[in-house]
Amino acid sequence: MAIRLANLADDIHPLEPSLNPRRRLRQAGEWLFLIPGIVTVLAFFIVPAGYVIYISFFQSTIMNPTASFAGVGNYRAILHSAQFGGALVHTLIFAGGVTISVLVLGLLLATLLDQRLRAVSVYRTVIFLPYVFPLVSSGVAFMWLLQPQYGFVDTVLQLLGLPAVNWLGNVHTALLCIIAVTTWEFLGFYTLIFLGGLQNVNVHLKEAAAVDGAGSWTVFRKITVPSITPSIFFAAVFSIIQSFQAFDQIYIMTQGGPAMATQTLTYYIYTQGFQFFNFGQASAASVFMMVLLGLLTGAQFFLAKRWVVTEE
């Protein structure tokens, strides 16, 4: 009891002079180890993010982001902007498309890889391999595969007597192609997460269900999926955040076109900030995106309570 009370006192008055000198030294040591992390987060995240919020209230010129105070002018401008509205819709379609694809296909592949197949490590390597390639090089490769004159895809289509499609130049197919390439790139990563989850599923539970007469589909639905809901939750949160940040593949393959069909929020921010040198509006869009992502992630955590099965 005496020890517990002393600990409580430490917690309430950690800097009291009566504190044990050794304990104070240890605390100082803890702070010392935290300093590099704190400084890095402050210097590269908190301070720049704060500055972005600050300049979002100013009209900028190329060399002076805070040229004149504009109040909420930049926010008003983006909310009235058809381009920004389009970028928001494209981002939601992109995030939804990629997340659904990687969740469904990732789970399917992980289930297959979890079987006792021959040469399973080869399949695992092949599926994970795209994740190792930089998105820029994958983007360039797919850009050439989908090129309308000499591209492999259209050449095959024409050999089959089908019309060639300018995949990345068509407003109806460009975003789908970007979603497909992004899914191809990241599928291995999500498959690995699900595979980890699957390998931790309690085998006894599965066996008990089987003994009770449950078929493999029922076992998958009632035992396996609930057991890996933490992995599914992690994958969903991570994929949505990753999709909102997507840039490389769009920059390489379509540059936001055709007719802004692949312009997402990140690309809109890049265009405003680094092509139009309109930092105020780019900052307002960044703040909007940060709030939106925060809300989405918060909503996911809130909803997770209803469907994610935890150990307790």
């Binding site: 850009m143 309308p148 130049g169 055709p258």
Partner: peptide
């Protein structure tokens, strides 16, 4: 009209 990031290149071609 040629479209896509290389629309101009396709036009010339």
């Amino acid at each position: 009209v040629q479209s896509g990031a290389d629309g101009w290149g396709l036009t010339t071609a």
